[in-house]
Every structure is written in C-alpha cells, then in structure tokens.
Design a protein around this nucleic acid. Structure first.
Length: 820
RNA sequence: GCGACCGUGGUGGAACGGUAGACACGCUACCUUGAGGGGGUAGUGCCUUAGUGGUGUGAGAGUUCAAAUCUCUCCGGUCGCACCA
C-alpha cells in the first residue's frame, strides 16, 4: 500500500472526533497531567509559530495519555482585542462576526493538524458566559480593595485611542502599533498588583528548575525591588517663606545611605509638586520655566541623551551636617519612582557626577577604595570602600555602614528603612469596544457602585458604530443609561472595557470546569485542586514574548484567587517551556517580509504528520527553528519509509516474545537500537524535551531494523517505535497500529534489560587522553584483564615509555598515562 | 551601561566531564529505474608525504588522568531591561 497522507489523516481525524478520544475523565482518583499551550488570538489563520506551539503540547498530551494519565489538553481563543475593532473600521465588519468566523476557521485548521484538544472545553474569552464569570471576579476584587479607580498621568496611544499599561509601553512606543505614547491625565482602574510585589518575587524560588532562568530574571528585573533609606529633607526658613509656607520638606530615597555625607545638592523631577507650585506662583523666571517645560515634554528617550537641569534657588538642610544644600531640577529624576526626588552624591554616583560636572556643583568624596588612590578626575567612584569625612561613621566598610546609618536615622526619628519597586499597579481600563465591560456604575449620590452579580454579564451592545474615534460604548445611545443598584436613581454605566490580559490571567482555571458545571460556575474548587494540584499546569508551552506581561499577570491572579478563597495554591504554572521563533532565511516569518510558509499549504502538500515531524526534528524546542524546504521533504520521506517498511511486521495483538540469545549479531543490534530509542524517548518526554534527539534515535533504530530480516524483531520494533512516534506523527502511527496491532501498542512500553546485555564491549584506548585505538572485551572483564589488553593494543605508542597511571571507565574507555 | 543565553562541518544540529560531528539536509560518485522524480550503495570537518599520520568545538589561560562540556579573561552574536536614585 502506498502512503497516502490525505486519506489516512482524514480518517483518523474523523475517528478521533466521533470517539471523543481526547476528553479528560472525571475520575479524580487517577493521576493527572495538565498540558497547556498559550491560547491564540483569533487573527484568522494559524501561522508556523502556532503550529510549533501546539505540536509541542500535543506531543506531551499524547505521550501522557499513553502512560495512562488522565490528561487535560484544552484550547480556547483569546478573542477580545483591538484587531477585531480595526478590522471593523477597515472593512466595516462586525467585530463579533469577524472574531467568530476566524475562530471557526482556526478550529478547522486544528483538526487538520490532528491536535488532541478536548473539544468539550473549548472557549472564547469574548463569550458572554466567560465575561459573566470574569465580571464576578472583578467585583470580588473591588470589594477586597484590589481594584481601584484613580486619576493619574497615563500612557495614551493616540493611534489606538486608548490607555496602555506600563508593561505595554516599549521604548516609549505602543507595543502594538509602535506609535509614540503620550501622557494623559485621566481616570483609570488599577489592579493592586504592587500588594503582591514581594510575593511575586519570593515565589519565583518555587519556579526555579521548572521555568527558564531567563524568564525568571526578566520578571525579577521588572519587579525591581531595592532596599534603602528614605528620609525627609527640610527646607530652610528662607526657602519656606519663598514657597509661601506651603511646603516644609520633601522626602528622598537612596540605596546608598553610606554616601550620605557626600550629598552636595538634591534634585527634583520636573513634575514634582514643589516645581508645579513654583511655576504656578511665578516664583521662577520665564527662562527657567521654559526649560522645565521642555524637560517635561521631551520623551524618555530624549531625556536620556543628555543630563540637564536648573537651580530652583531654594535650599534644604542636610539631616546630619545641618549644612545648606541647593535644590535643583534634573531631567534624569523620574516622578514615578520613589518620591520623585533624589539626594545627589556626585563623588559616588555616575549620574550625579555628570550633572555636577556640567553645572559645576561641588563633588564631596566620602568613600575611598580599600586599596589604591581615590581618583575623581574622570568619573565617580561607585564601588564599595571605606568611609571618611563621614563623622562617627569614618573607617567603616561602606556596605556594612549602610546598616549603621539606617539604624542611626531610625533611632533619631529622621528616616526609615524602605523598599522601592519598579513595578507599578496594573492599569486595566481601555477606552475601546471589543473587550469585557467593567461592571461598575457611577451614581451621583453613591459614587462608584458595583453591578449586582445576578445582573451579570454586562454584555456588549451589538448596535455600535465603530469608526476609530473615541470609545464606541461612550458614544452608544443607551448602553450608559442605567439605575444605581444601591439607591435606584438614574446613573451612568462605566464605558471602559478591560485590558485583554485580564481574560488570559485566569483562562487556565476555567478549563478545569467540565460539561457538568460549565454553565453554572467558572470552576469548582474540587476541579481546580485536582487539575491544578501538584504544581499547577504540568507543562505550559508558549512564546517568550509573554515572559513579563501574561505570565506575571497570571501569577498575580492566582495569588488573588487564593486570597479570595477560590483555590489554595500559589503558583499556576509548574513547568514552563518557552519555544523559539520560527525563522526563514534568517528572519522571523512575517507577511511584510514575505518569508512565511502557510501551514495549510504545507498540509495540503505533505500532510500534518510531515509538518509536525519536521518542526520537532529540525531543532530543540527552546531554540529558534530555521525553516528548510528540503528538510521538510526529508521528513516526508522518512514517514513514507516508516509506513512502507511496516509491511515487514506481522499482525499481532501482543508484543512478540523473542529469545534474545538465539539472534544473530544484526538482529541483536536492531533490538538494542529499538530499546535505546525507547529509553531516550522516556527521557525526552520527562526531562529534556529534545524531541530532535528522540526522533534521531528512532531513525537509528529504523536503520538497524532494516539491516536484518527477522520478522519478530521487525514486529517488536514496530510495536515500540509506533508507540514512541505516535505523539509526533499520530495519524500514520494509528494507521500502522490498527493495521498490525489492533491499536493495542499505543500504551506504556516496558524496557527489556536483556537486550542491553552484550557479548562483547568495545572500549576506546587513549594514551595521555588522546584516542589511539580500540579493544573488544567481555562484558564481565576485570580491570586487570582490560588494562593488559589495552597495553597490548597500544604497544606501539607505549614503546620506551613508563606507565604512571591506568584509568578504566566501565563500558567507555581506558586511558593510560605515560611519561618519558 | 546592567542582566540572561549562545558561539561545534557547506546547513539544521548530536555529544548530561570519557573515542567530537549521532541523526538529517546538501553535495560527489556509482547502481537501479530509464522524461521528471523515486529507490539503493559508498563517500563527505580540515590538512595530508595518504601512515596504525597531524589537526580540530570563537581566542587565550586554568582545573582534571581526560574539557565542546567546569573556572577565569577577552572577542563576537541574540534577547530582555535601561538615568529605577
């Protein structure tokens, strides 16, 4: 029979669907595996990155099913978001229709790829049912004080006409459309993620080993915890008077309290309250005000180019020396970190140094190197050293003195130990249509009032006008109109919708619900503790681009849900596998570059099995995958050979038993290669994830099988190899398995130790670590015997030398160390 | 600037301190089939005076009986963060 990928694949896809082959069991006494790939946005068609992602998760899911685990391998669509609205504007389409049409198409693609997803748990986050549960959680979070509304300076993308979270601003441009982000003062809802900063940081210890180091480091940097001293700088009387006695002090934060005696000026952010007051009350000359305005308006990139500032003509009193210190504005001081004011120590900080040099401010050294001379001619000395010119702290090590100085400040009640974070609260409201409405109501009398849970979901109206100008919900004639749930008076519904990252922060929990309670609740506690027990999602697979945003938010939601009593663990994803990008001609596949390969065309030409095999064989999952058309061809040929040669196996409903000792050398070798492949496969699925080496092992076994003719060895070989390969190339393996083995071999395979027992072993012989020759020894040969043989075989290189050391590495090699 | 990862044939990549280059792609020669394509056999790091030879994992040093692998310095690349006080 000829290998015909189309018929084979179609038949099995129908079979799996008809038999509901991939639905998880509700028997919670079985051991479980929760295999999850990051769900897609329904952009319209799958790209190769998706195919790689789901091929990986499918391999895990199918493997663990064979190992008799209860496997949950669900899929859904992250279906809210801007592209649906953009399509609406561009093509005058309905965002909902656009979205659900795309979903239908992509589901068909999933089917043609043979992915073993649970069909019963499919969802789209734009489903009203999903919105209903999500809005319920939002209300709970508001009640707990984890969601609040506040006016503030926000990142606004003029193109997308919406607010962006800090995490969505990349080099001060919009993460999606690359437009320069501007600051806008407006009301916005925030999640109190900063409450969890410490826990998000500390719990990363639990993820070590399971998550890539890189991702952990990125999150750690993002949270950006730093410990230090916070203290107040008091204005002198003259300065107070100048400011109309409206200000008495401002506070500063430093991680280098050891440099406190070196403070020679202080600097405020251009947006600082004191600066605003001085501008408003004409306390600065026009020239200065113009400079400040320029600083405020320049982008953060421009701000980095060169340090600049102006003196404010006011002074503060040094907390220890009581000397007067001038107050400046500096463009490098950020309003949104610490208190927007810094103490400046030019001698021991690079930025302060540059600034002081530019404006000719004093540079007071207070730390000297432990050895060598202090030289401040060209740059600041920022290393650890010994304190001097520092009063009672003179002579102390700079690191150790930090403790003493903080203690001194605390004892004298002039400052305190503080921790600062780069992490900001997560701004979640968006001024867009295609998102989950925030279920709140504005009442003139009651303020912000939550919708009653029985009224959820607050669904999106369908009759909206989307033209890219303003918020469609804001402009909608009736959506806004409602009654206050508390007092019953006329009130206004919130028209902001939620950031789509809210949906993806809990979808993995939703998948734990089954058909039985799907409509009634988001999930049950029992379901959650079963599927998420023992370390959460067992294998979470997706792109590294989510290292911060999605993965941090999902960790945050998990901790919040725990504190709301919905679950009782701390971390959602025990093991994370971040796949590399798919490249062609050295660049990421993209439509604009014209270097894409369309999965549908590939399947049409070669079949899904070929696509899956190539993707897993071409590179280890974490590395970039360079697309190679002749490599695809090679994968196709392998499958064809694999199928053709299955005719050498006989029909049987159990693995044939074989008398190993009666076999020829080639037959024994073939068996050993088959079991080698099995051992390697188990190792790959459980530890290493290097599917390329597993497939190579199977190819080696195939080559060895082909060098002998024993039908039982062929049959046993196919019994095992189709089991190993089923997670990779499922269609052809089910076909062979049905044809030859009544589908009975797609199960856990036992490793037979007998095939590894060999008649003789080849050992390498090295002399002084250099490989020279080989010897054949009996498996049970003693060390003395082996060394004697090695000396004999290596006589040529040993002539006239003295052996000073003899090393035997069992089953590997002999190394003789010689002198002379 | 800081941090993480990486550097092995013509290419993708193997080698979990123990005979570097598994497995594939590509290429060469031959056989088969005889449009094309397919299948098979052999060869394929480099240098070679062709030896049972030399050399070789970005460069250099170190640890070790033994280093692509561990340590240090440097060079190069990828990604992330970036005036975070």
């Amino acid at each position: 029979m000829e290998y015909n990928s189309k018929n084979i694949e179609k038949n099995w896809q129908e079979y799996w669907e008809a038999n509901k082959s991939f639905e998880p069991s509700e028997d919670f006494t079985k051991d479980k595996k929760y295999i999850l790939s990051m769900f897609p946005f329904p952009s319209g068609r799958l790209h190769m990155g998706h195919v790689r992602n789901y091929t990986l998760s499918d391999a895990f899911a199918r493997y663990y099913r064979q190992q008799n685990f209860n496997v949950l391998h669900p899929i859904g669509f992250d279906s809210f978001g801007m592209p649906a609205e953009n399509a609406a504007i561009k093509n005058n389409a309905d965002p909902k229709e656009w979205t659900y049409d795309n979903i239908d198409y992509m589901k068909k693609e999933f089917k043609t790829l043979g992915f073993s997803f649970s069909k019963e748990r499919e969802l789209a986050t734009s489903d009203e049912l999903y919105t209903k549960f999500e809005q319920g959680f939002i209300i709970d979070m508001f009640e707990k004080g984890l969601l609040y509304r506040e006016k503030g300076l926000l990142n606004w993308c003029p193109t997308c006409q919406t607010v962006l979270a800090n995490e969505q601003v990349i080099e001060s441009c919009c993460w999606r459309c690359d437009t320069q982000v501007v600051k806008k003062d407006m009301n916005q809802y925030y999640f109190k993620i900063t409450n969890y900063a410490d826990e998000l940081l500390d719990d990363m210890k639990k993820l070590e080993g399971g998550w890539p180091k890189q991702v952990l480091t990125m999150q750690e940097n993002w949270i950006g915890k730093s410990n230090g001293l916070e203290f107040d700088l008091y204005l002198d009387d003259e300065s107070k008077a100048k400011l109309g006695n409206n200000f008495e002090k401002f506070d500063v934060f430093t991680t280098r309290p050891d440099t406190i005696y070196g403070v020679s000026y202080t600097a405020l952010a251009p947006e600082h309250d004191i600066v605003t007051y001085m501008i408003d009350n004409s306390l600065l000359d026009a020239d200065t005000i113009a400079k400040i305005k320029e600083m405020k308006n320049s982008s953060s990139i421009d701000r980095q180019k060169e340090k600049s500032g102006v003196s404010l003509g006011i002074n503060v009193i040094h907390p220890l020396t009581k000397k007067l210190i001038p107050v400046w504005i500096a463009n490098f001081v950020l309003m949104d970190y610490g208190s927007g004011a810094v103490m400046a120590v030019p001698a021991h900080d690079d930025r302060d140094y540059d600034f002081a040099k530019k404006y000719d401010l004093p540079i007071n050294a207070v730390i000297k190197p432990k050895d060598g001379e202090l030289n401040l001619e060209k740059e600041a000395f920022t290393d650890r050293g010994i304190l001097f010119n520092s009063g009672e702290f003179d002579g102390l090590d700079s690191k150790k003195s930090q403790y003493n100085i903080i203690k001194y400040f605390e004892e004298n009640n002039i400052g305190r130990k503080t921790t600062n974070y780069k992490l900001k609260d997560w701004g979640v409201s968006r001024q867009r249509y295609w998102g989950a409405p925030i279920p709140f109501i504005h009442c003139d009398d009651c303020g912000i009032v939550m919708e009653k849970k029985e009224n959820l979901p607050i669904a999106l109206p369908s009759d909206v006008e989307i033209n890219g100008e303003g918020s469609p919900l804001e402009n909608h004639p009736t959506f806004k109109k409602c009654k206050c749930p508390r007092c019953g008076k006329d009130a206004t519904r919130e028209t902001d919708t939620m950031d789509t990252f809210v949906e993806s922060s809990w979808y993995f929990l939703r998948f734990c619900a089954s058909k039985a309670n799907w409509e009634d609740e988001a999930f049950s506690k029992e379901q959650i503790s079963y599927w998420m027990g023992n370390g959460g999602v067992d294998h979470y697979i997706g792109g590294i681009e989510h290292a911060i945003l999605h993965l941090l938010y999902a960790r945050f939601f998990t901790k919040v849900f725990r504190d709301l009593g919905y679950l009782d663990f701390d971390e959602p994803f025990g093991r994370l596998l971040t796949q590399g990008m798919v490249l062609k001609d050295g660049a990421k596949m993209s439509k604009s570059k014209g270097n894409t390969v369309d999965p549908d065309e590939l399947i049409e030409k070669y079949g899904a099995d070929t696509a899956r095999l190539f993707i897993l064989f071409a590179a280890p999952p974490t590395q970039e995958l360079e697309w190679n058309d002749s490599g695809v061809e090679g994968s196709y040929k392998f499958i064809k050979r694999f199928f053709d040669r299955s005719s050498n196996a006989k029909k049987c409903d159990a693995k044939p038993s074989i008398e190993h000792s009666s076999l020829s050398k080639e037959e024994k070798f073939a068996r050993r290669k088959v079991y080698d492949a099995l051992v390697r496969a188990n190792d790959v699925y459980n530890e290493r994830y290097t599917f390329n080496t597993m497939i190579a092992g199977v190819m080696e076994a195939m080559n060895a099988l082909n060098a002998q003719k024993n039908e039982d060895v062929w049959s046993e070989g196919y019994w095992i190899l189709t089991s190993i390969m089923e997670p990779v190339i499922p269609h052809v393996c089910w076909e062979i398995s049905k044809e030859k083995f009544e589908l009975k071999n797609l199960t856990k395979q036992k490793v037979l130790e007998e095939v590894f027992v060999e008649d003789s072993i080849t050992l390498g012989v090295s002399i002084n670590g250099k490989a020279r020759t080989e010897i054949e020894v009996a498996p049970d040969a003693q060390k003395d015997e082996i060394i004697a043989m090695a000396k004999d075989a290596g006589a040529k290189w040993l002539e006239g030398k003295t052996i000073v050391k003899e090393i035997v590495v069992p089953k590997k090699l002999v190394n003789l160390v010689v002198k002379g």
